[in-house]
Design a protein around this nucleic acid. Structure first.
Lengths: 346, 346
DNA sequence: CTGAAAGCGCTTACAG
DNA sequence: CTGAAAGCGCTTACAG
């Protein structure tokens, strides 16, 4: 019974040695049983595997990683999680990785522990891959990953450097879709409530929106905000825009949470009715957007496909397959609910 | 330059050996520099540490864990994440653990990978501790943790077995607070919209509510739901209760999301006005509850304190300190906003 | 105070 | 097909 140094009351774990001793085999043989492509007699493998489940042995992936240089850990770095869009993404990504026998190490970047620091400690665990699920552009973090050869893929955000992987919704296209939707309905005085200015989602949506307005000969939209993707920011942004000389008749908010805040400001703060007095449109199509109290017209991110693409890409990268750095932009879809309307005149 | 077996294009990591060679020291000495309580000359330590940051060396916690039997990993198992209450908890717990140099391995239990299976793979990483952040009662999972000697603490949920650790809001008390609030305002026909029946939060809130009603001589509340903690369930639950013979004048919903669904049902579905025609009260005080479109009266969970207690407990446990198994119930606070009112008559 | 050695739990050439 | 040996990147008694 090995040298069971009782570590702080912790029970000594079962190891290959235990299994080997019990079966009268060498540790090498036992070890091989856990690899499908190892040369080992089928009956031997079966014996090992059967006994393993009996005594509850599982190879220690940490020790294994020391040898194989593969930890089967994927690091997930997250920062702004206030958007309900992200928890779902986190969970679904994690599920997918788990299904492929990768485990997720969660790291949160915050004011106290910034992204660079967070990535530094993450890297000490030697993840096979890191995926970034955050809203700000940071090249430093991805640079330190690259320095140690760890591939990184950005989810719903494009890295600031050329050679990184990213999968996002086509935010520029989304912005254009929204411009068309509003302009087609007769709106000419448009407003934009921005989220964080350093988020690629924010800038791309704005660019698309703006560009399409210009193409269709509509006056440049008024814009405000740029503090956060939050209810409060949406509330404040709408108030700002709607108190200006030239009141917009329609607001594009950089995401759904902003839009919900904006609607509350319009309704409760200003006594407006939506969509009668004001059209509002969001982006993301979070669950809440479909609630009858909001019934928000928005652009739905193709979240299932985005997650599929991310895991596929991630897994390929983690396996060491060479794949061209690229950003994949998947088109979103405009979901027309009840917060925009046709206006006459103009 | 060591035996750089180019592993799938991955860059060979810097190790103690590299550092030792560069400094002309032994690996033992270098290793000691990273432990505050190790005997080592101060200047030596400083030299090592300085050089380490220069070349970007960090001890590999995985290799370290092999020796120390401490992975500095805390496993976080999560299942029903649809409640916006949880993402915040996840992030804040993770931040706290990070601050103490623990890292979080996220594991999600789902229909495809149930809790037991999830815990099994988690345990293979030998976490120093696991915290359960889920809504269903499962003793199997905690049993397998105990079998390998890994402490588990339940957050906002009490384990089904006696000797485990848990920190929760005092849900029974919360239910009582709500009963008092409603009864004090003259309500006598009360309704309860349940969440998942297997969640301890749900049963405790219901018990407290019921018991207090009985104590104050109010007729037993009608109850419905019991499918999920979701908007849809709240919507359906309210519809059910409000279509009964004896319509309740006030609804206690087992959490805020249910309450928001219930309010939408009452308002949009039934044309009722809140609180004029119906009082509604929730539980949690998620961010959304304070939005002006909801302004929901609710019981606020003492989330900051709950998290502090959890990390304190967790850290003590992870350090191997003996602490009595116990469930800690922290009192919540009733936040009186705009969804309940006094009724006359009776 | 420092170093050589053993060992943590694994895997993987290398012989047989 | 199997086993003995070396080694992954660390830490920690044990000498000196």
């Amino acid at each position: 019974m090995s040298d069971a140094t009782v570590d702080r009351g912790r029970i000594p774990r079962i190891t290959v040695k235990d299994l080997a001793r019990q079966l009268g085999m060498s540790v090498s043989t036992v070890s091989r049983a856990f690899y499908d492509d190892a040369v080992i007699a089928p009956e031997t493998r079966e014996k090992v595997l059967r006994r393993a489940v009996e005594i509850g042995y599982q190879p220690n992936p940490l020790a294994r990683g020391l040898i194989t240089k593969s930890s089967r850990i994927v690091g997930l770095v997250v920062s702004d999680i206030t958007n309900p869009f992200y928890p779902e993404v986190m969970v679904r990504l994690t599920e997918q990785f788990q299904a492929e026998d990768f485990n997720v190490m969660l790291v949160v970047a915050s004011p106290t522990r910034n992204e660079e620091e967070a990535v530094r400690v993450l890297l000490s665990y030697h993840p096979d891959l890191v995926v970034m699920l955050a809203t700000t552009l940071s090249s430093a973090a991805s640079a330190s990953c690259r320095k140690v050869g760890t591939p990184v893929v950005f989810f719903n955000r494009v890295g600031s450097d050329e050679n990184s992987y990213a999968v996002t919704c086509d935010n520029v296209l989304g912005g254009r879709l929204i411009a068309d939707h509003l302009i087609d309905r007769g709106h000419r005085r448009l407003g934009f409530v921005a989220g964080r200015p350093d988020a690629s989602t924010n800038v791309d949506r704005w660019h698309g929106f703006q560009a399409r307005c210009a193409e269709r000969g509509v006056a440049p939209p008024a814009s405000t905000g740029g503090v956060a993707f939050s209810y409060e920011a949406g509330f404040a942004g709408a108030l700002d825009l709607l108190n200006r000389e030239e009141k917009p008749t329609a607001l594009f908010c950089a995401n759904d949470i902003l839009a919900i805040g904006a609607m509350d400001a319009a309704r409760r703060g200003l006594g407006l009715s939506i969509p009668a007095d004001l059209s509002v449109i969001g982006f993301d199509d979070i669950g809440m957007a479909s609630w009858s109290s909001h019934a928000l017209t928005t652009v739905r991110q193709p979240i299932a496909r985005m997650i599929d693409r991310t895991t596929a890409l991630a897994l390929a990268l983690a396996r060491g397959n060479a794949v061209q750095p690229a950003v994949e932009r998947l088109p979103g879809e405009l979901i027309d609910r009840n917060t925009t309307r046709f206006i006459d005149g103009q």
